[in-house]
Design a protein around this nucleic acid. Structure first.
Lengths: 143, 143
DNA sequence: TAGGATGGTTAACTTAGTTAACTATTAAGG
DNA sequence: CCTTAATAGTTAACTAAGTTAACCATCCTA
């Protein structure tokens, strides 16, 4: 197995896979949301509730996060809550509206995705899942 | 196998995989190049030599491609050659400098990638390759 | 208690994308 | 032929998302 070949395949495939995903996220006709915003909502829900932690997990600068937060606050999808313990930090909380949008977008994306899977056999699905887990293992090694 | 689970895994893993790739492309310290530019150089070399064909394969609007081409021409990495047969079309050709940069960046990215693989066994590499092929098959179905 | 570290924001800028409108050219039907 | 439609590319005007540098407020620590 040629490692160089492998890396070239990776370089070839990932942008396509990512583009497909983005098109799913943005395919929601009623509630439009960008992919970065979707990711932020998602991460906040799974416990990342400060600008710094978001910046770290998404691997983006803090000002970038701060600006997207501005826009999400503007849209009433999240609220900024200054911390009592440490007055430098601002806790980010998803609003009911934000939760609703997030769920809707996730559902639509998931449906689109599933549509694309509908003629796959169980065995193929299993292979697909294993593939994703393999990629996941790769991106998570050596942090 | 739960299809919804599968889609959620996909949504989780792909952004990470993509971010890793981008960091490799931009890791070249001497010759810095953005990922979209890298992709365009890559596609031109594999035969896509008009704005339209690039826009289609990269799934981006033609004006977007046209503008990046402007910048690549400015940097002397590619040249625009008006076609003789059809005077509407402009053929894009990579310059020696462009080829050099592309190769250098690809080499660096590939090295970084390979570094990350170095403790993988042959069998694991094979699984990885199969995984990428699986993803590839998925993104290429139903066009 | 002074000095450095941390958390967040603002400012100024760049890149990459969008749609709409335009020019030039080619293809096609009556 | 000649008008009309389609195609290739660019320009214009705009937006989103990213960068670095600089700044303020707060907290920690020697």
């Amino acid at each position: 197995m040629n490692k160089k070949e492998l890396s070239e395949k990776y370089i070839e495939v990932m942008p396509l896979a990512m583009r497909m995903l983005k098109s799913y996220i943005r395919a929601e006709s009623e509630v439009e949301i960008s992919f970065p915003k979707y990711r932020i909502l998602s991460e906040i829900q799974s416990g990342m509730h400060t600008v710094s932690s978001l910046a770290e997990v998404i691997c983006v600068s803090r000002p970038a996060i701060s600006k997207i937060i501005d826009s999400l606050v503007e849209e009433n999808y999240i609220v900024r809550l200054p911390s009592k313990e440490d007055r430098r930090v601002v806790h980010l909380k998803i609003s009911p509206a934000g939760k609703k949008v997030f769920k809707k977008v996730r559902k639509t994306a998931s449906q689109k995705f599933v549509e694309n899977l509908d003629d796959m056999k169980a065995s193929e699905l299993k292979v697909f899942m294993k593939s994703l887990e393999c990629i996941e293992k790769f991106v998570n090694r050596k942090r």
